[in-house]
């Protein structure tokens, strides 16, 4: 159970999909204008992520390696279609507000990324908790940003007016404001993860195979003589 909690915490904070892995930012920037939309989007994504993680993990030994990406897409698209149809039938208002971004969950980097990086290597139980953690991590960030943006930019919260008309800073609801809030949220999370005297060092979801990696990440470990000799062989 301890491991499960660690996986959950991983998705929420230390490997937060949006702020640390920087995946799925497009929908975060676009949907975080209203709290309602953000909540709907977050829950829809969490549902799809948990289901697809579980199914892909269960099928990981059946799926041939060469065509795994199409297989993942089929699984993910199935769940996205379910969400779409349910929302259209029962909450048409939210369905309309999310628009194209609901359908775009199919190609959301977080879901495909977790399928590739986690679900196809781990057990069904672990994958469930990874999907839950990552999904809630996404929901937490998008709702957090949307609370600020709706309150400051529009003066309302869940549609109720908090700040009187005429005292809004509209740029926060616009695209530049979205990027600004996104950057601030990232800075806040990283500052919170900094331990005293030790800077937080994000491991960007890699297996530490730095030898042939071109990413300029800070956690790069120098290639030792042994590995380079092995590479020569």
């Amino acid at each position: 159970m301890k491991k499960k909690m660690a996986i959950l915490k991983n998705g929420l904070f230390t490997e937060n999909p949006v702020l640390i892995l920087v995946l799925g930012c497009c929908s975060v920037l676009a949907i975080s204008v209203t709290v309602k939309g953000a909540l709907g989007m977050g829950l829809a994504l969490t549902f799809v992520l948990v289901c697809s993680n579980v199914v892909i993990s269960a099928l990981r030994k059946l799926i041939p390696d060469q065509i795994r990406i199409p297989c993942y897409i089929v699984v993910i698209a199935t769940f996205v279609t379910i969400v779409q149809m349910v929302l259209e039938a029962y909450i048409p208002e939210l369905y309309k507000a999310l628009g194209i971004f609901l359908a775009l969950i199919v190609v959301n980097c977080i879901i495909l990324g977790r399928a590739e990086m986690f679900a196809n290597k781990n057990t069904v139980g672990d994958s469930f908790f990874d999907g839950l953690g990552m999904g809630l991590g996404y929901t937490m960030v998008i709702v957090g940003i949307s609370v600020f943006r709706e309150l400051v930019g529009n003066g309302t919260l869940l549609g109720y007016r908090i700040i009187p008309e005429g005292y809004q800073i509209r740029i926060i609801t616009q695209t530049p404001g979205g990027f600004f809030c996104f950057a601030c949220a990232m800075a806040i999370l990283i500052a919170a993860l900094d331990k005293k005297g030790k800077k937080f060092n994000p491991q960007i979801g890699c297996d530490g195979c730095c030898g042939n990696c071109n990413l300029g990440c800070t956690s790069r470990t120098p290639v030792t003589d042994k590995t380079s000799k092995e590479a020569e062989k």
Binding site: I169, R170, I171, P176
Partner: peptide, 8 residues
């Protein structure tokens, strides 16, 4: 710019 977009 911030003023222009916020308080057009």
């Amino acid at each position: 710019i911030v003023l222009m977009f916020s308080f057009t």
